[in-house]
Amino acid sequence: MLVKINGQEYEVDQGTTILQIAREKGIYIPTLCYLERVSPIGSCGLCVVEVEGQDELVQACNTYVEDGMVINTDTPSVKAARKAALEKILEKHPLDCPVCDKAGECKLQDLVYELGYEERISHKVVGIPLLKEPPVSYSTPGIKYYPSRCVLCQRCVTICSEYVGREVLVVNEEGDKPRIEPLYADRCISCGECLAVCPVGALTENVSPLKVRPWQKKVSRTVCPYCGVGCVLELNVGDNRVVKVTVDESIPPNYGTLCVKGRFGFEFINSEKRLKRPLIRKNDEFQEVSWDEALDFVAEKLTAIKESAGPDAIAGLASAKCTNEDNYVFQKFMRAVIGTNNVDHCARL
């Protein structure tokens, strides 16, 4: 079927939303609450567009296209409605950006900047208390929850129930201000999916003591070191420490999802207990030695045993934790240098 967006005609499939078509065709519509992985939430009101023949503006995220629909995404009334929606959010959101961990990667910050509402901020919004309320306890120690920064977009609630299937979070309508609450905290599996989708600094990472601004950190894409699913993740590193783990939703096999270990199990990397220097047992005690001394010692010992008892008197365990390259070199070492096939690893354990 055919639709017209901003005067241009497009061939589209039934069952797609206006937002999906617009994104596919490169037509920009701002959103705050929208998440591709779950059904449309429709809480922020930023994606409104005009459909000819309809009195009211419609939300692009949850309106399905119909044959012959004429859509305008950039009219004065659309602009005014978006502005009003953003103002409504800003009236409740503290402008504590200087102390907020999210600054620089905050969706709300980006939207304000992008849609240019400086005049509103200057006369109306500035002046609200910076942070009305300290962080409160959440369903996992991996996350710090600042309720006063919450814009009630409900991304967290929706991803937890629809995508993770745990249904930990609810919107509590009681009291003077509705808020998100981890009502079923005992069902939480600390996967941190809510943290990943929070567009503002309401949910922030609580594991790393060191925080860095986005422009101060290096982000490296790598693979999780735990189970065999092999989730692709991004280590956010500042000052040679892992400060956070993020994910790219477009990359298989996990497409943005992680579990507790992938998201929060990174402290071992920078642990003080890491081995830092080679150790040799001397008089029944371990002593730090130079690499040269350690390597000479290992080579001498192995050579002596190989010569006296034969290569099959030596056995080696490769590792399911090490890279393919490490394992290749390990078995080559055992086979070509030692001369034995006594090489195995913990595949059976």
């Binding site: 490769a318 090490c322 394992n327 690893h345």
Partner: peptide, 12 residues
Amino acid sequence: QNNVQGACDMGG
């Protein structure tokens, strides 16, 4: 394990 497949593939 993250690379148990690889460790087997690599002749470990």
